[in-house]
Amino acid sequence: MTWLGVTRMSFIEYQDIIQDGDTAIVYLGHDSMFPVTIQHGSQTQTKYGVMRHSTDLIGKKYGSKVTCSKGGWVYILYPTPELWTMNLPHRTQILYSTDISLITMMLELKPGSVVCESGTGSGSLSHAIIRTVAPTGHLYTVEFHQQRAEKAMEEFRQHKVDHLVTVKNQDVCKSGFGMSHIADAVFLDIPSPWEAIGHAKSALKVEGGRICSFSPCIEQVQRTCRALEGHGFTEINTLEILLRVHDVRTIRLQIPDLGKPLEDQASPASDANDAPKPMTYSQDACSIFKSGVPPRETVGHTGASTEPEKMFQLKAHFGTWTLSSDQYFLSDPWHVRSDLANM
């Protein structure tokens, strides 16, 4: 890319002005948005009409309202890892922000943390990790699918975080992370995590570290837990987190006509209940209130299905994921070394 001089959009630093080469999020309405790469001379079609990058976008402030050719308008948002997760091109099943938040906290990630991850997948978690460990930490991410690894690296470059991440195209179960004793935390999201626990352990710092494995099936979780115990990991925890969305709605509940005279309704009701009082008991008498209602269908289980044909199927099987912590025998370096010898 050939942008000179000006500080361009980056996932680890805010900018105020939309510039050529930026990745931006076009917000059309509730839950309706898409990413766009800003390019001089380029234009983007939306349902509200065309946006011309040179005239409509470049030089405007992020968060501005942009009117499209048909008179409708959109907002241009600065990308965050969370917005990216909602908008990124899916190459695999991805981790969503609810799980990512818990993983980030339970792995104790913060600026300066060194993290090993496998697989990279579509980079949803990777972006969130990089954001949190910047500017002094690093992410080593291993992906066995070559094109996915290349695409991820391209995105990291485009998002100006490539200096904080190393992408490797190899199989973590066979070759590990290619690093030893550098990581504060390891994250596994692979079909058979138990095969990678040994490698994960040798990637962790000698004084110990934390590990998290994310699996959709309880059988995977069981095998992983046994492998973790076998490698001397302690404090193993398995957690499941579910997001409950409350859609805010104005609800009108009709008041039935019980044949009571109208005058009576207003006065004696006051002590009995503090609920919103109905205006009248005529046919359209209503009680109006705000409520948070659950969406008709919601994600009841997360966890990546590895078969490509199940890529976007979210309601899968029985759901849980392992979150295991480790403080393995800090007082016993021999244990660690014996494990290294096994490699």
């Binding site: 309880i218 579910l242 409950r244």
Partner: peptide, 21 residues
């Protein structure tokens, strides 16, 4: 403001043991 969302999370701990999870 845009993209307003109201949510909560449920959190569950698991016992994981061979055949007894």
């Amino acid at each position: 403001v845009v993209n307003l969302k109201l949510s909560e999370t449920w959190l569950r701990d698991y016992q994981v043991l061979p055949d007894r999870s």
